[in-house]
Simulated scan of single mutants.
Amino acid sequence: MNAAQCRAARGLLRWTQADLAQASNVSEVTIRNFENEKSVPQRASLSVIRAALEAAGVIFVAENGEGPGVRLRKGG
Rank of each mutant, 00 (worst) to 15 (best):
W15R: 06
V61M: 04
F34P: 01
R50S: 12
S27D: 14
G67A: 06
A44G: 12
A51D: 10
A56N: 07
Q17D: 04
R50I: 07
G76I: 09
F60P: 05
A44W: 07
M1G: 15
L72I: 09
V48M: 09
L72N: 14
R7S: 12
G65C: 12
A3R: 06
E37S: 07
E37P: 02
C6K: 00
M1H: 11
N36G: 09
E37I: 02
K38L: 11
G76F: 04
V26W: 04
Q17S: 08
G75V: 14
S45P: 01
T30E: 00
T30A: 14
S24P: 01
A52L: 13
I49H: 10
E63P: 11
K38T: 05
V29G: 10
D19F: 00
L13E: 03
E37A: 01
R32Y: 05
S39N: 10
N33T: 10
V29F: 02
A3W: 05
L46T: 13
D19E: 05
W15G: 03
W15H: 04
Q42A: 08
E35M: 12
G67C: 06
A4V: 10
V29H: 07
F60S: 09
G76C: 15
Q17N: 04
S45D: 14
R50H: 11
T16P: 00
A23D: 00
V70P: 02
E37F: 00
V58G: 08
L72G: 15
A8D: 11
A9M: 04
G11N: 06
I31F: 00
Q5S: 13
L12I: 10
A56Y: 06
C6L: 14
L13C: 03
Q22W: 00
S45H: 11
Q42G: 13
F34K: 02
V61L: 08
E37G: 03
S39W: 02
N36D: 07
F60G: 09
S24E: 07
R73Q: 15
S39R: 13
R7Q: 08
V58Y: 03
R14E: 05
L12A: 04
L53E: 09
A9N: 03
F60N: 04
A18F: 03
A3P: 06
N25S: 15
C6P: 00
C6R: 06
Q17T: 07
E37D: 09
E54N: 13
A4D: 11
A62S: 08
A56H: 01
E54G: 08
I31V: 14
S45F: 08
G75E: 12
L46M: 15
L13Y: 01
T16L: 03
V58I: 14
G67E: 03
A8N: 11
A9G: 12
T30D: 00
V40I: 14
